[in-house]
């Protein structure tokens, strides 16, 4: 039963066709749902834009893993997972699986679903040389070799173009409930709960997303009643377009003067705001490493030129 054939290599002709389409020269980018198309800078003029292959390849609910091609819409993936009562950590905002992971933005329920990067178990991508490369592994726990899936998550396709991914899935909670409180302290709300899926704050209202067993959600709702007045709502508030990063403590006391209207993710440190975040000068040592990495993985700079993670 033992063979010496590399096990992470694929024989899926669809992936090889994609690699061939990407080729080995000329500026290239992959388009997903274009929901974050301008993130990291404008794509250089004249860049050839292709689409990644689509489809759920293999879903193993009992393993809590799914193998999915990068061009699959997140909605399509979620529908497939939903049939077995599961879900992913990806934000579903009309884009593709590959796009979501290339951008690396977490689901608004970051606390409940975990970080997107922690759900990426294995990546298959097309390298700058047009080769199909695999990294990571198909099981939920793995430390075999360097962790390229982490490097590639959030790298905006500048190190390789995703062809296929294996993601960790999780069971859907029995009950999901959004509540809104007026004039309550968002940090105290966060601290008063064992595990909220999300705690959002816009400067006045605090939204709480509770998930889990019905009895637990009821219990946590009662805990909220001790903090302030909360009432059930249908959904979270709409999120402003710009995205800020800060420490969780800072996110609980955002200055509206600087951000404009905002929604802060309490306990996480993500703040969605009207105004863009002023860019801090990156640490020169870190910038140097990023530049070296780019030069080594993509010597000709053909992958997503103009973009910088």
């Amino acid at each position: 039963m033992s063979t010496n054939a590399p096990r992470l290599a694929t024989d899926d002709p669809v992936l090889f066709a994609f690699a061939e389409e990407v080729g080995s020269d000329g500026a290239i980018a992959v388009a997903g749902g274009r929901t974050r198309w301008s993130q990291g800078g404008a794509l250089a003029e004249g860049t050839r834009v292709v689409e990644a292959p689509r489809g759920v390849v293999e879903y193993k609910p009992a393993e809590m893993t799914v193998c999915v091609r990068a061009g699959t819409p997140v909605a399509e993936l979620e529908a497939a997972l939903g049939e077995a009562g599961q879900r992913s950590a990806l934000p579903n905002r009309g884009g593709t699986v590959g796009g979501a992971i290339a951008v690396g933005e977490n689901h608004v329920d970051r606390l409940g679903r975990g970080a997107i990067r922690d759900s990426v178990l294995q990546v298959r991508y097309v390298s700058a040389e047009g080769r199909l490369v695999a990294s990571g592994g198909p099981v939920v726990k793995n430390v075999s070799g360097f962790n390229l899936p982490r490097l590639l998550t959030g790298s905006l396709g500048t190190f390789g173009l995703f062809a296929e991914l294996i993601l960790r899935t999780n069971p859907r909670p029995e009950v999901s409930r959004w509540l809104r409180g007026q004039g309550v302290d968002p940090a105290a709300t966060f601290d008063g709960l064992l595990r909220a899926a999300a705690v959002l704050w816009d400067g006045e209202s605090t939204w709480v997303h509770l998930e889990g067993h019905g009895v637990d959600v009821d219990e946590q709702s009662r805990a909220l009643d001790r903090i302030g007045q909360f009432e059930p709502v249908e959904e979270p508030p709409p999120l402003p377009p710009e995205s800020w990063s800060m420490s969780p403590a800072q996110a609980a006391r955002v200055d509206r003067e600087k951000t404009g209207d905002f929604v802060a993710s309490i306990g996480v440190g993500r703040v969605w705001a009207q105004k863009p975040q002023p860019l801090a000068a990156p640490d020169p040592v870190v910038r140097g490493l990023c530049e070296r990495a780019k030069a080594i993985f993509d010597p000709t700079g053909r992958l997503n030129p103009g973009r910088q993670p």
């Binding site: 970080a115 959030g154 990063s245 993710s265 440190g269 993500r270 870190v286 490493l289």
Partner: peptide, 25 residues
């Protein structure tokens, strides 16, 4: 011999994840 800080005390989705590349290396 240089010193650098990877990652952030924040939403962990900003920039290249050198932190994630370092952990387990």
């Amino acid at each position: 011999g240089e010193v650098a800080v990877f990652g952030e005390i924040g939403p962990d989705e900003t920039g290249l994840d050198l932190r994630g590349a370092f952990v387990g290396s």
